[in-house]
Amino acid sequence: MHRLQELTYTLSDLNYEGHTFNCLPIGGAQNVLQILVSDLDEMPIYVTVTDTQMLCITYLCRRDEIRTDKRDELNRSMLEMNVAVPLSSFALIEDYYVIFGALSTTSSINDICRELVTLAANAYDALEAIEEFLV
């Protein structure tokens, strides 16, 4: 909670490599912060802080948006790409394919900005790559 509030304040005045950040807290039991990276704002990033990590997650698509006959291929492709994709990894959360990055809770603001901008750019690329698998 505290960490996310702090992050909201810090990010609102920041310009990182030409990008600005638009933060919107999402209410609920779990503290979640929606962050839009300027010029890459079609893919919102949702940040949540646990005891040990700061997780930055972008939801790519629902599982049922992927053609049934192509799912295995997509899963495999994602696993194969995971290591090479800078800073981000693919994952499934319940019914959603996501791309995410995990940071230490003690990461610097510079590291967080790099993570956010990289993740948003990766999400754009991932979405384009997923297109051929969509129903």
Binding site: G28, A29, V32, Y46, Q53, I57, L127
Partner: peptide, 30 residues
């Protein structure tokens, strides 16, 4: 963490639904 992520996802889905849009239909985003 698993629990937190699930809760966060549920909240995000609810929040987006409350704003009359659906969370990231990949086609729409594209």
């Amino acid at each position: 963490t698993t629990e937190s992520v699930q809760k966060a996802t549920e909240q995000v889905v609810e929040n987006v639904a409350a704003n009359n849009s659906s969370l990231n239909s990949a086609r729409d985003s594209l």
